[in-house]
Design a binder for these strands. Structure first.
Lengths: 338, 338
DNA sequence: GTGAAAGCGCTAACAC
DNA sequence: GTGTTAGCGCTTTCAC
């Protein structure tokens, strides 16, 4: 069967397309109440569904929000290996759906630039992950579409940002272990030089140590991929160094690798090693023992991002940077506290 | 700056819109080679990006594929708690992106019906998860858009399906434990009566037992939510029954809960209990010990789904049902075999 | 309060 | 080979 259009409704009601359009768009002050009722009923009856393509063409926004995940490595397609994305997306989709928007998922790399994506679909806006440094910012081009950056440290005023206070969070995590009495605290992290975010976390770690008069030892910083496997590897290295007893991992997935490997080696957590993760992905609750970690409800954060991007689109958001609160989630990989 | 359209290119090249349209769409036999070159260069120079809204309106397909995940529980928004979706989506997005398609994510529930979604965006097709029974099939409505169902057992000939041989897979999993010498094998699963898929797995389990002359005992079937928490609970129940030594979990996440809880209770896996999971999500490799499970590369399966839906769209797919192969991934939660 | 008509960017049948 | 044109479904200005 053919598509039911605004024209069909108009004819069925003996009115013009314009009138129908008015009621579709809720401009009810322009149409008489009886007419509104009649048209509404007819739309219901004929199962009218507006065409977003047409609406978008007519310049009224596409009701489409792009969610952009940069693909660092071209060969790697598993963008969702990191449960952070999934959980965040979950909340974001939930919020946007309620508001009548949908999500277009796009992974960008060298071949398909972001600007093309946006123009192609007439996106109303976009939520973009992982644009950490200025070089990546360039890849976003310079159209003026509303863009919300998640965890980005660009100083480019053109973008809105939703960030964690990473330095502070890392400071708190480290302090937690220091106050447990740990003197030799390892930091297991991704490659710091490529990521301003990780630099912040490193510097929070350093200042926590400094404040407690513990000298910073670069040998206690383990840099590698943010993967389970690297967690395993770091655990082995750490166990090979006799003095370390506390570990900060800048992602839960690293903590999981560390935890499993240490237990496989017969270590007791948290008696022999205290471990603190980052993010609080659902994995943190599915470990044994449950992971002490820094973060907040990621899905909730996704919802907030939805709220933010819509505000930006509607011109209601003035602050360029939005800071998320974080919590210390004391669970079972650190010692009990009073 | 204004959007660069086909018309701008046409004017810049002193040709008509039609000519430009031909080269955009690769109908090169209709245009002279020099012209093609000239137009192509101009498109490049002016950074022309076609508008999908217009293309879609003109009836040429939207290059948009819907990915639909039904939301069982209205209050629950965490659609991605199940890593299966994430991994699958990852592969699907990867494949479709290469082919110039994008993904629109939509969760459907009572409030937003599927038909509306499809019409609204002029989707070219859809990949739909979790339509297990005929009742859910109804929710898909009866337009004729290409739809690929993942893990669905509907017999409705209108849809294409991509399935696992669930009964066989479950048979193999059970046989694995039987051949280890296990006599009392528990099945930990979701609610069977609501899911044909789970009924198949149950029946594979039963027939494997039967074939080895082991009587089926309904008390060894543990039904609950497909969650980590239920895995924990089931583990407790199982440990409370003295004779069980083998466990089949119909999802890796259940296996994880079981595994962690048993180890927390001081049990040795696989010496005291053998555990087999289902799916082979990345979680399976991130457990300690690594999970023996039934499945195949989920991300690869997503890619295949992308290939399939495009074939369906282009009318190149004749088979209504596509079966995925599965593998037995012998890892460390079952005993070593020769 | 309602309608006519132009225009959004693109395609394709048809004419030249 | 290339141009003309109608039309896809909708919005919106401007008449009435």
């Amino acid at each position: 069967m053919k598509r039911v259009t605004i024209k069909d409704i108009a004819e069925a009601c003996n009115v013009s397309k314009a009138t129908v359009s008015y009621v579709v768009n809720g401009k009810l002050n322009k149409v008489s109440p009886e007419m509104v009722k009649k048209i509404t009923a007819m739309m219901e009856k004929m199962e009218y569904v507006p065409s977003l393509s047409a609406k978008s063409l007519a310049g009224k926004g596409s009701k489409l929000i792009g969610v952009v995940i940069p693909q660092v490595d071209v060969t790697q397609k598993m963008i969702f290996d990191n449960p952070f994305y999934s959980e965040f997306l979950s909340g974001l989709e939930y919020y946007l759906r309620q508001a009548g928007y949908s999500i277009v998922l796009s992974v960008i790399n060298r071949d398909n630039c972001f600007e093309d994506m946006m123009k192609k679909w007439n996106l109303d806006g976009a939520v973009v992950f992982g644009i950490d440094n200025e070089e990546m910012v360039k890849a976003l081009g310079n159209q003026k579409m509303p863009i919300l950056l998640i965890d980005s440290y660009t100083t480019n005023r053109r973008f809105y940002r939703m960030n964690l206070r990473d330095e502070e969070a890392s400071f708190v995590a480290t302090t937690l272990l220091v106050e447990e009495g740990q003197k030799n605290i390892a930091l297991v992290t991704g490659k710091v030089d490529k990521s301003i975010l990780l630099q912040r976390r490193l510097s929070g770690y350093k200042s926590a140590l400094e404040q407690h008069h513990i000298p910073f030892d670069p040998k206690l910083v383990f840099e590698g991929d943010v993967t389970y496997e690297y967690g395993v590897q770091a655990a082995n290295e750490i166990m090979g160094m006799s003095d370390i007893t506390g570990i900060i991992a800048t992602a839960d997935i690293l903590a999981l690798g560390i935890l499993n490997q240490m237990q496989a080696s017969g270590k007791n957590i948290p008696n022999e090693y205290s471990i603190v993760g980052f993010d609080d992905t659902y994995q943190a609750k599915m470990m044994y023992p449950k992971l002490t970690t820094i973060g907040q409800n990621i899905s909730r954060r996704g919802e907030l991002a939805g709220e933010l991007i819509l505000k930006i689109i509607h011109g209601e958001q003035t602050e360029k940077e939005y800071f998320m609160d974080f919590e210390v989630l004391l669970r079972e990989t650190t010692r009990k506290r009073d």
